[in-house]
Design a protein around this nucleic acid. Structure first.
Lengths: 156, 156
DNA sequence: CGTGAAAGAGCGGACTT
DNA sequence: AAGTCCGCTCTTTCACG
């Protein structure tokens, strides 16, 4: 994991459809060397996946909510059950188990408020282990991404 | 935007490096038809971008924090300034402007607590328009992604 | 790590329904 | 308008220096 790899990864986090030739110009290596490095980065799991990112608005998923969920009991079996449900639910884009005031933070997409209300009925009101939840409606997705900063450190 | 497009997009949200031939088997179209649809989906912005997703753990165990920020004044010029800074900061993976108890919700990565404290100094304490912020440390990234559900409707 | 040849994928045009 | 077939071009891949 040297400076070449970092430059490569920074590029791939922006656009993974760039040809090896274009990448080679940007990082200062030959095209083949870039491809070999990328292959290794994929094999070792540094690159976890390669995906298309959709525009939610283009698909009719116009609302995004950030939800803080507080559980009634923090027993592992209840938490695991909740995690399992969140993973299985397509409306839940992201789910984090956190310390602090809440137990979980979710990022949920919905077509409209009615759609979201149905979600809350199914997953919160109907779940007796959910003590309370607080919804924040997103007005502006200022920055949305998964890009990891690579400047400087990191242990490969 | 029909069932073929939805199947295509669902596949591309999992892996955008599948060949048109493999995609054609999965969605029931010819390879060429898949490519033409994908091209149109990119041109129309339904596919917003194509990226590599890195494994944060492979890059040096970084911490993830979810931060709720409350501003002193909600005047547009202050908000825009804050948004600009968040977009420019690599530590900020995601930033949402929201209704509710807080004004912004951030998802921040840091190398360690010291690194995060430095971040808070630079962006919160040093910014007189930040009234307060509350940090939730992520213990388990139960579900992390940007995949949008496509089941059913939506208006391309 | 860089070079060169071979296999494979993407791309666009013409034709069909 | 959309899908298929069939060329061509570019990209990736691998063996070797």
């Amino acid at each position: 994991m040297d400076e070449f790899d970092r430059k490569l990864l920074n590029q791939m986090q922006i656009n993974n459809r760039q040809t090896a030739e274009i990448l080679s110009e940007k990082v200062g290596l030959s095209p083949a060397a870039c491809q070999k490095r990328l292959k290794k980065l994929r094999e070792t799991g540094v690159i976890a996946s390669d995906i298309s990112v959709l525009d939610p608005a283009s698909i009719g998923r116009r609302m995004t909510m950030i939800v803080e969920v507080t559980m009634e009991r923090e027993r592992p079996e209840y938490l695991d059950e909740f995690k399992r449900k969140m993973r299985a639910s397509p409306e839940v884009m992201q789910c984090y188990y956190v310390t602090g005031t809440a137990d979980f933070v979710l990022i949920v997409t919905a077509k409209d408020m009615k759609d979201y209300e149905e979600f809350t009925r199914n997953f919160f009101f109907q779940n007796s282990n959910v003590r309370r939840f607080q919804t924040n409606v997103v007005m502006d997705g200022v920055k949305v991404g998964l890009a990891v900063p690579l400047s400087g450190d990191g242990e490969g």
